[in-house]
Amino acid sequence: MRIYPSPGLLVRDPVKRDFLPEAGREVPDGDIYWSRRLNCNDATLTPPAPEVSAPAKAEKTKAIEGSDSQ
């Protein structure tokens, strides 16, 4: 199963000895450690929501600059 840290939390992976990345990681199904992390809401099976991309902001700035020149 693929597991993700809950927003704002750092969750340590006991096997790799690092923190669970925001992009998630494949872990064994039924693993006791990860089942406990899911039960206490330190981790989730739901991927994080995609962030708003920077090009949308650039288009907004371009529109504002274009209106000033008229």
Score class of each variant (00 low, 15 high):
residue 10 L to P: 01
residue 10 L to Y: 13
residue 12 R to D: 00
residue 12 R to I: 10
residue 13 D to V: 07
residue 13 D to C: 11
residue 13 D to T: 05
residue 13 D to I: 01
residue 13 D to G: 04
residue 13 D to F: 06
residue 13 D to K: 06
residue 14 P to G: 07
residue 14 P to R: 11
residue 15 V to G: 06
residue 16 K to Q: 12
residue 17 R to Q: 15
residue 18 D to S: 14
residue 19 F to E: 05
residue 20 L to F: 00
residue 20 L to R: 00
residue 20 L to T: 00
residue 21 P to H: 11
residue 21 P to L: 09
residue 21 P to K: 08
residue 21 P to E: 11
residue 21 P to T: 12
residue 24 G to D: 02
residue 24 G to M: 03
residue 24 G to H: 01
residue 25 R to Q: 15
residue 25 R to G: 00
residue 26 E to V: 12
residue 26 E to G: 06
residue 26 E to T: 13
residue 26 E to R: 09
residue 27 V to C: 09
residue 28 P to E: 13
residue 28 P to M: 09
residue 28 P to N: 11
residue 31 D to T: 06
residue 31 D to A: 12
residue 31 D to C: 11
residue 32 I to K: 10
residue 33 Y to W: 13
residue 33 Y to D: 01
residue 33 Y to A: 02
residue 34 W to P: 08
residue 34 W to Q: 09
residue 34 W to L: 08
residue 35 S to F: 05
residue 37 R to W: 03
residue 38 L to E: 04
residue 40 C to N: 15
residue 41 N to W: 11
residue 41 N to Y: 14
residue 41 N to V: 07
residue 41 N to G: 01
residue 42 D to W: 14
residue 42 D to E: 15
residue 43 A to V: 00
residue 43 A to M: 08
residue 43 A to T: 02
residue 44 T to A: 00
residue 44 T to G: 06
residue 44 T to S: 15
residue 45 L to W: 04
residue 45 L to Q: 10
residue 45 L to C: 04
residue 46 T to V: 12
residue 47 P to Y: 07
